[in-house]
Computed example of a mutant assay.
Amino acid sequence: METIHVVAATNDDYALHLAVMLNSLLENKFSENPIQIYILDGGNLSVDSKAKLEKSLQRFDVKPQFILVDASLYSGCLINRYYSMEMYFRLSIPDLLDHGIQKALYLDCDLIIEEDITILWNNNIDDYVVGAVFDPNELRREQLSIPKEYGYFNSGVLLININKWTENDILEKVKQFISDHPSALKYPDQDALNVILHDKWLRLEDKWNVRANRLNKTDIILAIIHFTGKTKPWNGKPPGKSAYLKYLDNTQW
């Protein structure tokens, strides 16, 4: 039975929210597929946070693997109060996982998973570099000169084809684009990924990445709630906050 490889990146500021996300994921996983969780750490994740993350997952008999990332690889990338260094670590996933792993699922920390992640994992991306959910941001697509037929995607949920990512040298291409076009980027890694992968991504069902601010405007059966934007369930009252609080109770924070 195929192992599901889930990857996230965090620091001390987001460790709690990662624990909430992973609890929601594991609480709603009903398949018998083994799961391995990898947590990317650029040196800003304390021993205490790591211990709390491990204890938060113990009841599922899942032990996360912490992987230290060389943060200097992203020294030239835009980093500020909204864009942390850890945001870029997803770009290195194929280089960080063991050889032989062919697919990985990257997840942002500010998500709540409400459906069995195995269903998402089982999408066939053999002919694509990534699977992602369409983002109806026509302005960004136009500003980045992406042809309309390809659209624009949100990078908070990425099903990654490891081999194709490596073959296409995506890490270096994205870093180069970020370096060459700093003034053109609003969402640095996401914009760059959309340009580089504009004709190499599979559109996943919308339910796998639904922005919280759209919860009251859609009739989509939710699979993943994504708390995009500045208003989060830990600093405000966005739609979907009750789901976050439900899983928060099961963490070590």
Rank of each mutant, 00 (worst) to 15 (best):
M1C: 01
E2F: 06
T3H: 02
H5Y: 14
A8T: 15
N11K: 08
D12M: 01
Y14N: 06
Y14S: 04
A15N: 07
H17I: 07
L18P: 02
M21Y: 05
S24K: 07
S24G: 14
L26S: 05
E27L: 04
E27H: 08
K29C: 00
K29F: 02
E32L: 12
E32T: 08
N33W: 00
I37G: 00
Y38T: 00
I39N: 03
G42Q: 09
G43V: 12
G43T: 07
N44D: 15
S46T: 13
S46N: 02
K50D: 03
K50V: 03
A51Y: 13
E54Q: 14
F60M: 00
V62G: 01
K63E: 09
Q65P: 03
F66K: 01
F66A: 03
F66I: 04
L68A: 14
V69T: 10
D70T: 13
D70F: 12
Y74C: 04
S75I: 13
S75T: 10
G76L: 11
G76S: 14
I79V: 15
N80M: 05
Y82P: 01
E86Q: 12
F89R: 04
R90C: 10
R90D: 07
L91T: 08
H99Y: 12
L105T: 07
T118Q: 10
I119H: 13
I119T: 13
I119S: 11
I119F: 11
W121R: 03
N122C: 03
N124R: 08
D126E: 14
G131C: 08
V133T: 15
F134R: 15
D135F: 09
R140T: 02
R140M: 09
R140D: 03
L144S: 02
S145V: 07
S145F: 10
S145D: 08
P147C: 11
K148G: 03
S155M: 05
G156W: 05
V157K: 02
L158P: 01
L158E: 01
I162A: 06
N163T: 09
N163G: 10
W165V: 04
W165M: 08
E167W: 01
D169W: 05
D169Q: 14
E172F: 12
K173L: 06
K173P: 00
V174K: 03
F177T: 02
D180C: 02
D180Q: 11
K186N: 13
K186R: 12
Y187W: 13
D189H: 14
H198C: 12
K200Q: 13
K200L: 11
L202A: 06
L204D: 03
D206L: 14
W208E: 01
N209C: 13
V210H: 01
R214T: 15
L215N: 06
N216F: 09
D219I: 06
G229Q: 05
P233F: 08
P233V: 03
N235R: 09
G236H: 01
P239V: 10
K241F: 00
S242Q: 12
S242R: 09
A243E: 15
Y247R: 00
D249K: 15
N250Q: 15
N250V: 02
T251V: 02
Q252W: 09
Q252K: 11
W253C: 10
W253V: 06
